[in-house]
């Protein structure tokens, strides 16, 4: 049997997903037995032209990580889609927009002002911003256009599967790769994970009654090691997040922040968590409720930490 052809690409991402693909450890040998990597800019010296010159559908599987935030990301998403039989949105950025997607609370102009003027380490008295074209003595230079709105991969091209996680856990990555290697791919559109239910389902912490009078940020308390973190007032996102990571963060005494995305059937992860969180507040007095809510300094950022571009509204409105 001829070997599978695999491509890996990164768009707007941090590089963590690249490392996560390597985190399958010795299983990578098994992958190498059955597959050839035909494109992987981070690891091997490929040029865009190499992939552009391939026949359509000549790549078996593309693991695409990163969100779509500029022209280059978009171009490569379209190119790789055309060249690949199976397109996998690998990791939270490609799947839901993730941390780069938080830029959707702003727009291009505000992002540029922050990055190129306001940041304390920046000196830019002439207020020079990146231009898509600039003339220099040697000729004209071009850089990709930076978009107002970060998009997910599936908002850009047709996607076959989604692998959740920021970054995906080793077992989740392998679940996807195994399906590819064995040719046992699930129905199109599947979010590949060991669980369709919530992280809480995999969490071994003891749960009693969820009634909270005060919320804390992780640096404010040292939580008890065995009791549910949410019951201790930490914003643990476990009940509105898809499992599959084996409750990794609660195991390390840290609240889940929601990186595996919504549980099966939920469109908007943020309002799902909001609903659950409001239910456990231990007060029926509107003023006290307001005071308790003041413990949550950045509700939208907390609820949509990983999923703003993939949420119902996709972005904030900037006046």
């Amino acid at each position: 049997m001829s070997k599978l052809k695999i491509a890996l690409y990164w768009a707007a991402s941090c590089g963590g997903c690249e490392i996560a693909t390597l985190a399958i450890h010795e299983k990578i040998l098994k992958l190498a037995e059955v597959a050839d990597i035909v494109f992987w800019p981070v690891g091997l010296d490929f040029k865009y032209a190499d992939v552009e010159n391939m026949e359509d559908k000549s790549i078996d599987v593309c693991l695409f990580n990163g969100a779509i935030r500029n022209e280059e990301n978009e171009h490569m998403a379209h190119t790789l889609r055309a060249k690949s039989k199976v397109m996998i949105a690998y990791g939270s950025c490609a799947y839901e927009g993730c941390i780069p997607g938080l830029a959707n609370f702003y727009n291009r102009q505000l992002t540029f002002e922050r990055a190129y003027i306001e940041t304390p380490s920046t000196v830019n008295p002439d207020k020079i911003f990146p231009q898509t074209k600039v003339k220099v003595p040697e000729g004209e230079l071009e850089i990709p256009e930076f978009y107002d709105t970060v998009k997910t991969l599936a908002q850009t091209v047709d996607v076959d599967y989604f692998v959740p996680g920021c970054p995906p856990e080793e077992r989740t990555t392998w679940l996807a790769l195994e399906a590819v290697i064995e040719g046992k791919l699930p129905p199109k559109g599947t979010v590949i994970s060991h669980s369709a239910k919530a992280v809480c389902d995999e969490c071994v912490r003891t749960r009693e009654e969820k009634k909270v009078k005060k919320f804390y940020r992780p640096y404010q308390i040292i939580p008890e090691p065995e009791k549910c973190l949410l019951e201790q007032g930490l914003l643990c996102y476990g009940l509105a997040t898809r499992g599959g990571c084996d409750a990794l963060c609660p195991k390390a005494n840290m609240p889940c922040t929601g990186c595996y995305g919504p549980v099966e059937g939920v469109i908007d992860q943020g309002t799902h968590f909001l609903t659950a969180l409001a239910s456990i507040i231990d007060s029926n007095d509107p003023e006290e409720v307001q005071r308790i809510l003041d413990d949550i300094p950045d509700p939208a950022g907390t609820f949509y930490r990983y999923s703003l571009p993939d949420s119902l509204l996709r972005r904030a409105i900037i006046k």
Partner: peptide
């Protein structure tokens, strides 16, 4: 019995989030 108490806590939290979303 307590459906509306849940609402009483949800709507203020939703309003906070909405403002951050520019609404």
């Amino acid at each position: 019995i307590e459906g509306n108490y849940k609402t009483l806590r949800r709507i203020p939290l939703l309003k906070k989030a909405l403002q951050q979303l520019g609404i």
